[in-house]
Structures are given as structure tokens and as C-alpha cells.
Design a binder for these strands. Sequence first.
DNA 1: ATGAAAGCGCTAACAC
DNA 2: GTGTTAGCGCTTTCAT
Lengths: 370, 370
Amino acid sequence: MSALRKKPQNRLRPAAISIRDVARRAGVSIATVSRTVNGIATVDPQLALQVWRAIEELGYLPNTQARALVSGRSRMLGLIVSEITNPFFPELVQEFENLAVAQGYEVLIGSTNYETARTESLIRRMLQRKVDGIAVMTFGIEEDLVQKLVDREFPLVFVDAGPNLPNIRILKVNYGEGIRQAVQHLAALGHRSIAFISGPLRLRSAVARRDAFVKSMSELGLTTPTQHIVEGDHTMEGGIAAMESLISLNELPTAVLCSNDMTAIGALHALYKTTHGVPRDISVVGFDDIHLAQFMLPPLTTVQMSCKDLAVAAVEALRAGIERDHPKIMQKEWPVSTRLVVRRSTAFPRGTLPALVEGAAGKRRGINAK
Amino acid sequence: MSALRKKPQNRLRPAAISIRDVARRAGVSIATVSRTVNGIATVDPQLALQVWRAIEELGYLPNTQARALVSGRSRMLGLIVSEITNPFFPELVQEFENLAVAQGYEVLIGSTNYETARTESLIRRMLQRKVDGIAVMTFGIEEDLVQKLVDREFPLVFVDAGPNLPNIRILKVNYGEGIRQAVQHLAALGHRSIAFISGPLRLRSAVARRDAFVKSMSELGLTTPTQHIVEGDHTMEGGIAAMESLISLNELPTAVLCSNDMTAIGALHALYKTTHGVPRDISVVGFDDIHLAQFMLPPLTTVQMSCKDLAVAAVEALRAGIERDHPKIMQKEWPVSTRLVVRRSTAFPRGTLPALVEGAAGKRRGINAK
DNA sequence: ATGAAAGCGCTAACAC
DNA sequence: GTGTTAGCGCTTTCAT
């Protein structure tokens, strides 16, 4: 009874159809099956046909694990985002995934929730699953966590900034572009007192957005008092808190630019609660242009950062790091542009002539118009 | 030069630290390393210590692919959702992922976008990656796609309905509960003419929600004319269209219950565009209670279906199908409850005495109050 | 053009 | 209690 026993069958599920079954059925060796499946040109067309038929009949699916084990490549990409529940990220995930799948990659997603421990375990898990590369789209990450990844000489993509190393590629978002358009739009309407609700300032991308705002303002000869730059945290709750602190000020701004759309939605909500009208009393501008933005009340004027562009750049940059024959293998920086989308949450400032005329004509209505 | 060559090094990245390196460093066999890593009790504590130290020093991470190959289990769970960009799903994904990771599983996510071809490729990819089980949380899926999965005798979880087979577990959402509360809440406020915007009716869960509404209405002796039940598609755009068709009717309802929150947000938007006030003219109720719901203008009254509960049930039901020694291995149906959350988008119907009193007192403000 | 065989990193049976 | 060893399913030499 001992010499005959071959397969111990201690596995939990019955073994699936394997390459050997196909080979037997097609009357060829497993090498030929492998070659056929991988589209190696030297296989006799006749044999290839037999193999494909056998595959069809048996419903064979190559075992990805085994393939990965022998090839050293998993064809999986890691995608790390800040918070999957921030609507911007699902949109990004969707685009990223579509592109990755089209290139034959699977995507492992993880959100850091801004927690270091969580991020660490995320990275360890992805490393262990042998992803071929990781895109860190958190718009900022703590430095020593970066180190963990960098040490592995492993294809990586960061947004905005990252160590200058051969395996690292950076997506350079041109915040200036869109934010300048936003500031100029507000200035053209007549706004002079424009506040800014930033993201969490330990994230470099949040700093970059704030700096772009300050720069655009000074280009127009406008300054922003310190108390008109409030730190938020890129959530609706943070937007509410920041807007409330702005409202409590003696000098209320006539417009507020937010570091992302969730913050802007929170600001809208805070204004609603305190019976301030948007855009009648205060104009609000967001950043990201999430799908939801156009459905806000009023529809949100916002700076669009295209998820599609971001995802395309991320996937291509990763592939450039992974695939030996990628055309842009040497490209380190991948540009992403931004632009303003004007909707209904911005208008002439309160008390100005155009605003009064508009108000009388009743053409533009903010919410809470009393 | 031929007899000596061992490692062909044709792989793309240098081979990582393997179990053999650890064994060598710790001066033990690879079996001992394996036992140590897997927490097998029979290992000598002294040796175990040496092994752990070696692991530490080398930064060894066990290769998940190899583990999966030999054990026949990948410790990956598939999670299929309808649309990752519908905010309900990221919340679900988040909860699901947290639970799965806590149990040592990784999650492969896919959204069908209601496309059959996409769903098919999704299923094939997950099968090929050898996930240990799949939770299909699309709230309805086409029957022959189900078949593809069912045939594989593979742990599966569906929502609401699915084939009665040993490997399949069903999450039974108690729609009646929350929807009855919603209808009774509206009826208590004095609403008699309540419309319903459904989801896409080819999805069984959408039908279940509509039926729960009709049943709750008839329990109160209320009927809903056919034209007051409009089919949406669980998107904001669909909610807008459905609400607009409702508005164009001769007999405008005083309240609208929606099959999900996105539909309700669309409805809010449509009402805003046509200068109808919420809740002054029309009360709106959503379903799901996504995080965003409380930040809508006005904050949305909605039926909460807890993501957490849903995720807990899904992960546990999957584990019951995967793990031989799971306590609830025989449980086929996993209940999930729903309940009403009252916010500001519902009020007394227009023209009724309480509404007039409220209006005069100015206590409750809807948007667009003119 | 095809097949035989080595071996990817690991687990588990078996021998000691 | 520990080591030796046989595969898991596949790709890729190497020999034919």
C-alpha cells in the first residue's frame, strides 16, 4: 500500500485540471502545452490545434501561482491609496484597474487610512504576494515607510515627490495650472479676500497645493492673511470644522478654495448649517472634480485633476519599471495636468454691483437664499 | 562550465531571500524554519529563537506563491461589486478588507459595472488566481454567470438569492424592516402619496426593495399608482431622470422613497434644478446610508443597511465555506438587518397644518426655501 | 519542432 | 524534535 500511493490528497479542494491532464488528452508533452498556451511560434500548428481543443474540453485554466513561482513575476500590481472611502480614490482605482487588466496585470488594492501601522502591514503583504511593482497614490507618505520599499530595489511610483533612485518614478502633478485658473476666475469675479482650506500639511502634496494657491494669489498682487489659511484633513468633517473656524472670524472671506472636493463638500455643509448662502455669501471652489461634484447643491466649481490621466501615467510608469523592453524605461517624471471646471458654487462677491443685479434678476440662485 | 551552473538567473529580479538562506544562517533544516514560521509547537524553543533571529537579520518574507502552490490554498478572497464608484461599495470594500486581512486573507476586488463581458473576465481571472472563495455583492447577477461559478464547486456568497447548493451561502437582507420604518415614518408625518424610484429591475435585490415598499404601503392601506413607481438604475443620473419624470406628472407625490442613496442624491438634485424644495415640497428618503448621506443638503433621511454587518456576514460565510473546522459550516442563510435613520430631508407634507406652522416658525429649513 | 528533466520556494509525510 | 525528501504546476534549458 505504500509504494503505490502517489498523491497524498491532503489538500482542501480536489486538484484542478493541470497542464499534465491537457498534455495527456492532446497526446503531447507538457512542454508543448506550455509553449502553445504562451504563444511560442515554433509549435506545429496541427499540434497547437489539438492542444487548444484539449484545453477547451477540459476547461483548463493555467495556475497563476505556479507560473509566478517559476517566472519570478506575479503580474500583480500594488495600488496604495489614502482612503478608499474618499470618492476620488475609487474613481482612480477603477481607471487604474482597467488599464492594468488590459495589460494582463491584476491589482492588489490597499488604503492606508493615514495609519502608519496599517501602511506597514500593507507594504509587507504586497511584498509577500510578490507584486511586480507598487504605485503609492496617497499624495504623501511618511519618509521611513518609503525607505522600506526603496531598499528592495523594486519598481515604485510616487505622486509629486520621492527619492531620486533608478527604480522610482514620479508623477508630477501640475497644481499651479488649475489652481492659478481658479484664483484668476475668483479674482475676475471681483473676489479679493480668498481663503484656503488645506489638506493635512504633513503630506507633501497638500503642501504643494497650498503653495500653488499662495503663489497664484501673489501673482495677482493679492495676499492672504494667516488666519485665512486653515488646515483641514481632506475629509468632509475636516471641511466643516475648517469652514466653521473661518466663519467665526471677524473678517469673513468672500471665497474659499479647498484642497480637495471632500473638504469643499464639508465647507458647503457648514455654510448651510450656519445659513450662509453659496455662492451668494461665499463662493466655494474644490479640487479633484470627483463625479459627485457636479451633483452638489450648488454644483461645485472645482479644479479637475483627471483620474484617467493619473492612472495612465501610474500604470505606464510602473510598466516602465517592470518590463525590460518598455519604450519609456528611462523616463523618471510623468506629468499630469489640472484645469478649472466652472459650475455654480462660485459667483460675484456679496454686496458688489454685479451680485446685486444678478440677485434682482434671480438668475443665479445659491442655496439658502433667503 | 556546464556541470557547475545551478541557478540560470534568467529571472527579471534577483531571487529574494528564501527559506534555504534562513536555514543556512540559523544552522537548521528548511523543515525547521517552516515549522517555526508556521508556529508548529514541537520546535525546540532554542532553535526557534535562532530561526527568528535569522529571519530578522535577513529580512525574510515567506513566498506566498510557493505556499499557495503546495497548500492548494491562496488565502485570497474575491470580492465582486457592481460599481466601485458608487460610494456604498468602497465602504463595503473597506470593511470587508479589514475583516479579511484580520483573518489572514488578501482581497481581490472587481467591479462588474453591470457589464456581462467584464463580469465573465473578472470571474475567470479570480478563478485563475485561485482565490479560496468569492463574495458576489452585486445585489443581483445574471443567472448563467452564476452557473460558471457554481460548476466549480467553489465557496460562494450571494446577496438575497442564489442557487440552493452546498457550497453556496446567502446573505439575507431584511429589507422589510427598514423600508417599513421609512414608510411608517412618512405616513406618520401625514404623507399619503408616496412614490418609489427603484433600482434596475433585472437585479433581484432591486425587485426585493420595491416589493418591500409596496408591501409596507399596503399594510397601511396605502396604494401607489403605477406611474408613481419609476425605474432608476442606482446612479445619480438615473435618480435625476426618474425624479424629473415624477415631476412632470399631473399628480406630484409628496414624498419619494429611493432604492439607494445615489438615486436619492440625484432626486435631490433634480428637485433643486426645478426649484422644488426639499423637504418643503417633497420629502426624500434614501437607502444604504452611505457616509455622504448626512452631508447632503438637506441631510438625507435614509434606510441604513450596515456595511459592517454585511461585510462581517460575507467574510464569515465565506470562511464557513472554506475552512473545514468553521463553527457555522452548515449555516446557509446569513441575516442582515436594516433600519431607518431620520435626518432633514423628510418633513410634513406641503400644505398641511403642521407644515405651515413649522414654516412660520422657520425651524426646519429645506433647501430652495423661497 | 518536440520531449525530458531541472527547479522556482514551500509544506508535509516519513524516517530517524 | 529534527532532517530528508517528494512533490505542488509551471517554464525553460538542453538534447534530440
